[in-house]
């Protein structure tokens, strides 16, 4: 079980050791790998205090001077609190990577102040942004490696909890923006992050599904690659899953791109309802109450396959 944040920061540390222009800013948010970064490269790390807005402004200033800035804090605070600062960075087209830690119900035990179930919309709606969502640690490491040499104005959304890698033995192509699992041709499941792993697990545990379904990890949902759209166009049936409220979910953003020429009744999107959930029932408990548990997903899969 590996943490996405540690994988990302560890890889960044390797890159930063050879490039003094890589700097890491944190708004008092840590990780074991960050301890190592700070220990090895103290001059390339800056602790901003719990001041996310200033962190983004400082990132703007440093990026203006040619630094490759990675700023890091918890998802709801580094995105929602700083939306205007990010807009300013976007207007100046600065290559700042914001590491958005703990998306979805990652902080299930903490309650809605710490949930990031609407953060995707903020990252997506910043003009010129690129948006990544990691589903495992090896992907996070590959993403860090890529962004350290190809800086862009982007958001990298990480899960809080550790997990097993899905495909760690393969080289991941970050530029394509997606990867796929299984080889079915009846149904495409598109997701990212935690629900991608859920979908992967459901298919993995059902040999029949494996011959019917292809699971797409759309780890870069903005911009979506032409290659991905071409591949999706081959599927008549599509199921989109996201641990976001509907108005902030992948479905909202993908519909205009994938519905063209397709029977809309064969495209479904499952996401969260437009409300705050205060139940202290853990992440899967919250997803279950929100209608995104394994059973509901499987029911939707069955329904689409049978159409």
């Amino acid at each position: 079980m590996n943490y996405q944040r540690d994988s990302f920061i560890s890889e960044l540390r390797v890159q930063a050791a050879n490039n003094q222009d890589i700097v890491f800013l944190s708004a008092d948010f840590g990780a074991p790998a960050l301890d190592q970064f700070i220990s090895d490269l103290p001059d390339q790390f800056f602790h901003l205090g719990i001041s996310e807005q200033n962190m983004v402004d400082v990132a703007i200033g440093m990026a203006m001077r040619g630094k490759r800035v990675f700023s890091y804090a918890m998802a709801p605070f580094v995105l929602m609190r700083c939306a205007e600062q990010h807009k300013l960075a976007a207007m100046m087209n600065l290559p700042i990577t914001t590491i958005v830690a703990g998306v979805g119900f990652s902080y299930a035990n903490a309650g809605p102040t710490h949930y990031a179930t609407e953060d995707l919309s903020i990252a997506m709606n910043l003009i010129g942004s690129t948006v990544y969502t990691m589903s495992d640690a090896s992907l996070a490491g590959a993403c860090a490696s890529y962004l350290s040499v190809s800086p862009e104005f982007c958001f990298v959304r990480l899960d809080r909890m550790p997990g097993d890698d899905l495909f760690s033995e393969n080289v991941i192509d970050i530029t394509s923006g997606y990867r796929s699992f299984f080889s079915g041709k009846t149904l495409a499941i598109i997701s990212h992050g935690y629900l991608l792993k859920k979908a992967h697990s459901i298919v993995m545990n059902n040999s029949q599904y494996q011959s019917q379904i292809k699971v797409f990890d759309l780890f870069r949902c903005k911009p979506v690659s032409e290659e991905f759209l071409r591949e999706i166009a081959e599927f008549e049936r599509v199921l989109i899953l996201d641990e976001q409220i509907t108005y902030s979910s992948l479905g909202i953003y993908l519909y205009p791109q994938i519905l063209r020429g397709r029977d809309s009744s064969k495209v479904k999107s499952l996401s969260l309802a437009d409300n705050y959930m205060f139940q202290n029932v853990g992440r899967d408990g919250l997803l279950s109450e929100a209608g995104l548990c394994d059973e509901v997903i499987e029911k939707e899969i069955e329904s689409l396959i049978s159409l």
């Binding site: 003094q20 700097v23 001059d43 800056f46 807005q53 200033n54 983004v56 402004d57 400082v58 990132a59 703007i60 200033g61 440093m62 990026a63 203006m64 001077r65 040619g66 630094k67 600062q85 300013l88």
Partner: peptide, 16 residues
């Protein structure tokens, strides 16, 4: 409310 933070980033990078 952005100018000082941006200035700090510029000055910090210049110092580096």
């Amino acid at each position: 409310g952005h100018g000082l933070g941006i200035a700090a980033g510029i000055a910090l990078a210049n110092r580096m």
